[in-house]
Design a protein around this nucleic acid. Structure first.
Lengths: 109, 109
DNA sequence: TGAACATATGAGCAGGCGTTCATATGACAA
DNA sequence: TTGTCATATGAACGCCTGCTCATATGTTCA
């Protein structure tokens, strides 16, 4: 017979968060899973920046950057401030920094 | 004229990690960006588990789980131990836990 | 060795995602 | 209001990725 893990499964299952939360976690990290967005977040690490500055920094279209910023904002990872025609983006909280920092450590050890 | 950010860009550019590292960071988080893999890592949070136990826990094919474990292992996120026919998987380091924990906090605040 | 079990692997397909292109919205200045 | 600049949005296309199915590898026991 195939082997048995009833007890273990019962135990682990009890401690698993709900599917919805796990799905949300996956969706959150999916946002970190793109080089362009990582670069944007890294760029905002120290200072707020306007859209066209980010586009110039990354050598990409304003449109592409704007689309990505929308994704980041929808996930509450960045926030905005308007000054005249210009909209400045900055990181919304410290989790962004610490998540990236943890990833960085994992890679460089 | 379009507006100017020479100084800012020079400054930010100087502090940006190399493209290769940023790419690796993206690739790493891409691995966290899938519900199945998140579930696997969460399951291994407390205890090592064999492949078929994980498959049973998640209600998925042994094949699918095995493919995902290969991805996780290639990224040094999990490690293995053999005992007879069975191979037990466990988390490879603490970064996995802290990355997930940071994501969790971001979602639940 | 041969059978049974645990896990790994390869090919193929469907859905998701990031970019581009064209265009729209919104704000300021004249 | 009209023109210009900064940003946002929608549609479409190509690529990537995760699952499935079939099969292979590897281990134990009789």
């Amino acid at each position: 017979m195939p082997h048995n893990h009833e007890e273990l499964l019962k135990h682990v299952k009890a401690d698993m968060p709900k599917d919805e939360l796990l799905q949300d976690l996956g969706d959150l990290f999916k946002i970190f899973g793109d080089t362009t967005r990582i670069k944007i977040m890294y760029a905002l690490h120290e200072d707020e920046m306007c859209v066209c500055a980010i586009a110039e920094l990354l050598g990409m279209t304003q449109s592409a950057i704007s689309h990505q910023l929308k994704v980041l904002k929808a996930a509450n990872l960045v926030e905005t401030r308007r000054d005249g025609k210009t909209i400045y983006y900055s990181l919304a909280d410290e989790h962004v920094k610490s998540i990236i920092a943890q990833g960085y450590e994992h890679l460089t050890e």
